[in-house]
Amino acid sequence: MSQQSYHSGPSDERVEGTIANLLRIGVIVSALLVFFGGVLYLIQDGGQPAPDLSQFQPGQLRSPASIIKEVAVLRPLALIMLGLLVLIATPVVRVLFSVIAFALQRDYLYVFFTLLVLAILLYSLFSGYLTGRGAVGVRFSSPRLLALVVNWEYHGS
């Protein structure tokens, strides 16, 4: 980018370099966790019948809290999920870092934009757990969505 004259603080090139490294590290850590969990899973359950995924039924490991609890006892599937959580968190950390970088550059317009994106991401990740019933019920009121909320509470309990 060519607008460095606008800014003080770290150059765009330096910011880009750091973002690139962040993304790379996130993917590598996540892939290693998934791979390690996968190997453990195959050693423990490799001979079991394959999971039946032909009909959708919500899984067990659905919140960061439950995943971490299971990781503590080294359950292979929870280790895989932890790796996937790291992967999902990588772009979030990247956005968080961008907020800081734009703030250091005193580019307040972009601090605002990035904070907006960060808020949307955090809302997506955590809204369901904070209210205990998913944010859907708070935001919409059509009958179908109400049905969804009821369904959610039923499965979520």
């Binding site: 969990g37 899973y41 899984g59 659905r62 999920m81 997506s124």
Partner: peptide
């Protein structure tokens, strides 16, 4: 990545991310 992360949170709540399937896929 950022777009997908926004919906991944929702997918996770609904239990659509199955570790046994996602491991080899990813």
């Amino acid at each position: 990545g950022v777009t997908a992360a926004a919906s991944a949170g929702v997918y996770l709540h609904y239990g659509q991310i199955d570790p046994a399937l996602t491991m080899p896929v990813m």
